[in-house]
Design a binder for these strands. Structure first.
Length: 105
DNA sequence: GCTTTGACTGGAA
DNA sequence: GTTCCAGCCAAAG
């Protein structure tokens, strides 16, 4: 299985995220069909930078795991979409993208 | 084809 | 609640 499929699925999952919503790398990986491959999502996003709303993808707990100006830019973009921030974290409780709006864990 | 790095995660300190 | 450590996966060198 070419990693291309993996990237494609990941990108599709990210594109599925509506504006004003956010999701974690683990969520995207699971949505793509590869649970546990959170790091793979990061690698795929970095490669597909610009082709997908990478800004809507955050780390676990709504924490920005980005480096450099990207972290700053992501926060700005999310704020522009209506996402509220809780200190240095994103308010996942109100902006966490769920499939069907089901509570989990 | 193997090694290193990285936009990760979950649990313990 | 934040920081540190070890584990996992995929892309790049």
């Amino acid at each position: 299985m070419a990693s291309t499929e993996y990237v494609k699925k990941v990108l599709a999952a990210v594109r599925r995220i509506p504006r004003g919503k956010v999701a974690t790398y683990g969520d995207v990986a699971e949505a793509a069909g590869f649970p546990g491959a959170a790091r793979g999502v990061a690698a795929a996003l970095r490669k597909a930078e610009g082709t997908v709303p990478w800004q809507r993808v955050l780390g676990a707990g709504g924490r920005i795991c980005l480096r450099g100006v990207n972290a700053f830019e992501q926060r700005l973009l999310l704020e522009a979409e209506g996402v509220r921030f809780r200190g240095s974290r994103v308010d996942m409780k109100a902006h966490r993208f769920r499939s069907g709006g089901r509570n989990r864990q």
